[in-house]
C-alpha cells in the first residue's frame, strides 16, 4: 500500500503501474477547464482552443485551484478532423460556453470519402497548438501533476469527417467500406497519439463516444469497432485508457478486452455490475455525473456520489465526460475532499 505522501503525478502513474493508491486519484482523460480558471485571466472560452499558452494555462488552472490530479488538453473534438481538412466553428464571438463543432465535413457519403493523411501531421491544423500546450504543461507542472492528452476513437472521428447518418447506415449495409475508412483513421490516431506522447503527455485517452451502446449494437461494436480500437490501442504507448460514454453496460467486457490499461465509463454504467463482469484486477475509472451531480448538485450530492463510486469499485474518480466549465467551485472542492477522505484503497 502506497500512502498519502504521493503527489498527484505519482498517484496517477502509480495507479497504472498496478500499485494500490491510497487515497485513490481524482483525475480525467478529458477536458477539465472551469470558468474559475478562465476568470483569473479574463479569457473567454473560444480563445483557449487556439493558443498553446492559453490552452496550457487553462488546463493547469484546475489542478492549481482545486488540487485535481491532472491537467488535460485539448478541450474540443475538432482537432483531428481539422488536421484532416475539415472546417471548424469556434463560436469565436460567443459569450456562452459552446464547444467547437465541425462546420464543414470532408464528404456527405462514406463512399465519396477520401482521407488524405497530412505528411506533416505534427504541423497540421491545431496539432502544434496542442503539442505546445503539452510541452508548457510538462515544463510548468510536469513533476507534480499528471499531464494527459486524448484523441478520438476511429469511429467517432469518422462521424466528424463524414455525415454521421450515412456512416451509421453504411456500418450496417457496407461494413467493408467503413472498415477501410477506419483503417486510414487508425493510422492517423496512432500517429497523433505518438506526437502527444513525444511532446510530454504522461497518459493518453482514446474517446470512442460515437460507438456507445445508445447508438450501435454490442454485436456491431464487436465486429466493426473493436478491431480498430484494438489496433489503435496496441500501437499507443502505455498508460492508455479507453473511454466510452453513454450506455456501456452491454459492451463493458468488450471494452476491457480492447488492450487499454484502463477503461472509463460514465454515469449510465452500473459500475458495481461492471466491476463484477471484468474482474478485480482490471482498472476501471468513473463515473461521476459531470452535469447532473457536479454542476446541478449540491456539495452533499457530490460527496454521496463520490462515496457510491468508491463503493462500486472504481480505481479512480473520473467525471463521465468533460467537466462542464460552469461547475460551482464548492462542488469541485467537495469532489476533492470527499475522494481524499473516503478513497482509501478499495
Amino acid at each position: 500500500m502506497v500512502s498519502g505522501r504521493l503527489n498527484s503525478r505519482e498517484r496517477v502513474l502509480g495507479l497504472f503501474q498496478g500499485q494500490e493508491i491510497d487515497p485513490i486519484p481524482v483525475f480525467s482523460g478529458m477536458g477539465n477547464v472551469t470558468v474559475h480558471g478562465l476568470e483569473e485571466h479574463g479569457w473567454r472560452f473560444p480563445e483557449i482552443h487556439l493558443d498553446g499558452y492559453k490552452m496550457a494555462t487553462a488546463a493547469a488552472s484546475t489542478p492549481r485551484l482545486f488540487g485535481f490530479d491532472c491537467a488535460v488538453v485539448p478541450f474540443d473534438m475538432g482537432v483531428e478532423a481539422e488536421a484532416l481538412g475539415c472546417e471548424v466553428n469556434y463560436y469565436a464571438h460567443h459569450t456562452d460556453i459552446l464547444y467547437p463543432t465541425i462546420s464543414g465535413k470532408l464528404a456527405d457519403k462514406v463512399e465519396d470519402l477520401n482521407v488524405r493523411v497530412p505528411e506533416d501531421l505534427g504541423g497540421a491544423g491545431r496539432v502544434p497548438v496542442v503539442t505546445e500546450a503539452i510541452r508548457l504543461l510538462k515544463e510548468d507542472l510536469g513533476d507534480e501533476v499528471a499531464i494527459g492528452a486524448w484523441v478520438l476513437g476511429p469511429f467517432t472521428l469518422g462521424g466528424q469527417i463524414v455525415d454521421l447518418d450515412d456512416l451509421l447506415k453504411m456500418s450496417f449495409k457496407k461494413p467493408d467500406l467503413v472498415n477501410s475508412v477506419l483503417e486510414d483513421l487508425d493510422r492517423v490516431l496512432v500517429a497523433l497519439a505518438g506526437i502527444y506522447k513525444e511532446a510530454g503527455a504522461d497518459y493518453l485517452t482514446v474517446r470512442e463516444m460515437g460507438a456507445t451502446g445508445d447508438v450501435i449494437s454490442p454485436r456491431l461494436f464487436g465486429s466493426l469497432i473493436r478491431p480498430h480500437l484494438e489496433r489503435v490501442l496496441a500501437s499507443i504507448e502505455s498508460p492508455k485508457i479507453l473511454h466510452i460514454c453513454g450506455d456501456t453496460n452491454a459492451i463493458v467486457e468488450q471494452m476491457a478486452q480492447c488492450g487499454a490499461d484502463a477503461i472509463s465509463v460514465d454515469q449510465k454504467n452500473e459500475l458495481a455490475a461492471s466491476r463484477a463482469k471484468i474482474g478485480p484486477d482490471a482498472i476501471i475509472l468513473g463515473n461521476l455525473d459531470p452535469y447532473g451531480v457536479l454542476v446541478e448538485g449540491r456539495p452533499e450530492d457530490v460527496e454521496r456520489s463520490v462515496r457510491e463510486i468508491i463503493a462500486s469499485g472504481a480505481d479512480a474518480i473520473w467525471p463521465g465526460c468533460d467537466i462542464w466549465p460552469t461547475v460551482p467551485a464548492e462542488n469541485m472542492e467537495m469532489l476533492m475532499t470527499a475522494a481524499r477522505k473516503f478513497g482509501g484503497g478499495r
Partner: peptide, 14 residues
C-alpha cells in the same frame, strides 16, 4: 428494448 440501434432505425426511416 435494445433489439434495434440507431443504424437500424435510420434504415427503417429510409
Amino acid at each position: 428494448s435494445k433489439e434495434y440501434f440507431v443504424p437500424e432505425v435510420l434504415m427503417c426511416a429510409d
